[in-house]
Amino acid sequence: MEDLHPRVRLLWTAGAFVAAAVLGAIAGALAWFDPLSLSLPPLAVAGTVFGVAFVVGVTYAALRYRLWRFEVREDTLYIERGVVTRVRTVVPYVRVQHVDNRRGPLARLLGLGTVVVYTAGSRGADVSVPGLAAERALALQDRLRDLAIESDPTDAV
């Protein structure tokens, strides 16, 4: 079993920061316009909501990192993940249609990449491995592609 790159926690924390900031801004705006006339101080409300949301987000990111695992097995790709809902996915290489390598701007800055595996199934795009070191992502993409090619010549339907 293989873990994700530890830096992915930074990536997810950044995501949590943005989400918490948006939530805080909304809460602050609500307190400012005060439709229910509770007369709470807007800045304090925004700050508290932001703080709570950020702490929850960071904890979630840490748990998510700890629970994320994958393994390149002999004829299947195995993925285990999920904090609230645990999900274990098994993808046989025969079914792989193509493999993508995706890198967002922040991920590029952190030297991370995501490998997305497509199958013909209705949930094909669900299978992705985020937060791998860039070179590891490329290597995994190559490896999956090779395994998919060698496993079966017929169409994957």
């Binding site: 274990r88 996915t89 199958t119 013909a120 949930r123």
Partner: peptide, 9 residues
């Protein structure tokens, strides 16, 4: 079968 997904909420 394309993929098998096991889920526990």
């Amino acid at each position: 079968v394309q993929t098998v997904i096991e889920r526990e909420t």
